[in-house]
């Protein structure tokens, strides 16, 4: 992987990003010219009320959606200019996703779920298994490796999801409402885990949330309202 463009330490660089949806023929301005930089190794929470545009921004950075105006560069790659399959590759190799509802493949065991993404990358079987086991163990769920998602609690499933997200060594971990389906005790454990990953391994984490506890664990807090950034402060 080339590191040429990473010299300045900026993983995500958004400039003048706008996104407008048509909802029942009425235009909804989800983002109105947002400028946003994200430094390598940071842990940022995006918050704001429903419809503020936090999820939209996250999806644009993750290459799941396209901006109408402005530019987004992820790890130096201009996301706007990529084709659908190049976007797929970007997501596969550079970004780790953690979803609100965990979204594990129900027919695969925890370890197989983690291995699956490496299969897509074309990692050799031996290496795959080794890395998956290691990843699960580092998150404290090594003994659950052979259980399927249906046999795991919500917190355990979310850990598997995180293991899946970080096992590929992404430049950026995106987490959309990671705590929405968890109770507060489990949320706290999860957040400690994320913070540890950020502190110890330097994994860059960007999360969209409306949970104050999540915001409290982030290093930097960005608040959006009506498609614009209204607050940007370090914790």
């Amino acid at each position: 992987m080339s590191d040429v463009s990473v010299g300045n330490g900026v993983v995500v660089d958004c400039a003048g990003v706008s996104r407008t949806y048509q909802e029942d023929a009425v235009p909804v301005h989800a983002l109105r010219g947002v400028d946003f930089q994200f430094a390598r190794g940071d842990f940022v929470s995006l918050s704001g009320p429903s419809g503020s545009g936090k999820s939209t921004l996250l999806n644009l950075i993750g290459g799941l959606d396209r901006a109408d105006a402005g530019t987004i560069a992820v790890d130096g790659v201009a996301v706007n200019a990529l084709s659908e399959s190049e976007l797929s590759d970007l997501r596969l190799h550079k970004i780790g996703f953690v979803f609100q509802s965990y979204n594990l493949i129900p027919v695969l065991s925890a370890q197989e779920n983690v291995e699956f993404i490496m299969q897509l990358q074309g990692v050799a079987p031996g290496e795959r298994a080794e890395r998956a086991v290691e990843s699960l163990a580092s998150l404290g769920i090594g003994e659950l490796a052979h259980r399927r998602p249906g046999e795991l609690s919500g917190g355990q499933q979310q850990r598997v999801a995180i293991a899946r997200a970080i096992v590929t060594h992404p430049v950026l971990l995106l987490a959309d409402e990671p705590s929405a389906n968890l109770d507060s005790g489990t949320t706290e454990e999860l957040l400690k885990l994320l913070r540890r990953l950020n502190d110890d391994r330097g994994i860059s984490i960007l999360t969209a949330t409306h949970d104050p506890m999540v915001m409290g664990y982030a290093k930097r807090r960005v608040v959006l309202r009506d498609g614009a950034i209204v607050e940007d402060s370090a914790n």
Binding site: M1, D75, V77, A81, E86, D89, L90, E112, Q119, L120
Partner: peptide, 20 residues
């Protein structure tokens, strides 16, 4: 677009299907 494809490793990607 050449520099972009250089940025994103695609060569090792198995565009077929995983063995399992």
């Amino acid at each position: 677009m050449a520099e972009i494809s250089a940025e994103i490793p695609t060569s090792r990607r198995s565009d077929g299907l995983p063995a399992s």
